[in-house]
Simulated assay, not measured.
Amino acid sequence: MIVECTPEGGVRLAEPFDFRNFKLVLKGTTGVRPASIESITFVDDRNALVPIDLVPALPGRPDDAAWEAAYADMIEQARRHGWIDANANAIRAHVERK
């Protein structure tokens, strides 16, 4: 699953059925390290915290119960691996620039 951010400020969900990978992709001339995009917090140049509730609200998200259940399972798996920041209610994402 990819949260894509464009230079124009658009944020969308790509590859929404890939529940084994989660990353934030900054496309084009999006800043080297933006302070915040759609409430996404940058931990450092390679990691960001994406609010758990943001992902289901993004364009590109399938609108069905099976997706919702699989997303909830992905969050629980991430929690078990320590990839959830409980204080921020966010999942840690690797940042890629394209």
Score class of each variant (00 low, 15 high):
residue 1 M to H: 13
residue 2 I to N: 15
residue 4 E to K: 15
residue 5 C to N: 02
residue 7 P to N: 04
residue 10 G to E: 07
residue 12 R to G: 10
residue 12 R to Y: 10
residue 13 L to E: 03
residue 14 A to N: 15
residue 14 A to Y: 13
residue 15 E to D: 13
residue 16 P to Q: 04
residue 18 D to T: 11
residue 20 R to S: 15
residue 20 R to F: 14
residue 21 N to S: 15
residue 23 K to P: 09
residue 23 K to T: 12
residue 24 L to S: 08
residue 27 K to N: 07
residue 31 G to I: 00
residue 31 G to C: 04
residue 33 R to S: 09
residue 34 P to G: 04
residue 36 S to Q: 08
residue 37 I to E: 00
residue 40 I to T: 05
residue 43 V to M: 10
residue 50 V to G: 09
residue 51 P to F: 00
residue 52 I to P: 06
residue 53 D to L: 00
residue 53 D to C: 01
residue 54 L to S: 14
residue 54 L to H: 09
residue 55 V to T: 07
residue 56 P to C: 02
residue 57 A to K: 05
residue 58 L to V: 04
residue 61 R to N: 10
residue 64 D to Y: 05
residue 66 A to N: 14
residue 66 A to F: 15
residue 67 W to I: 11
residue 68 E to G: 14
residue 69 A to T: 13
residue 72 A to R: 11
residue 75 I to L: 10
residue 75 I to W: 03
residue 75 I to G: 10
residue 78 A to W: 01
residue 79 R to Y: 08
residue 80 R to H: 14
residue 80 R to G: 15
residue 83 W to A: 13
residue 83 W to M: 11
residue 84 I to E: 01
residue 85 D to F: 01
residue 86 A to G: 07
residue 88 A to N: 05
residue 92 R to E: 12
residue 93 A to M: 02
residue 95 V to W: 00
residue 95 V to I: 08
residue 96 E to D: 14
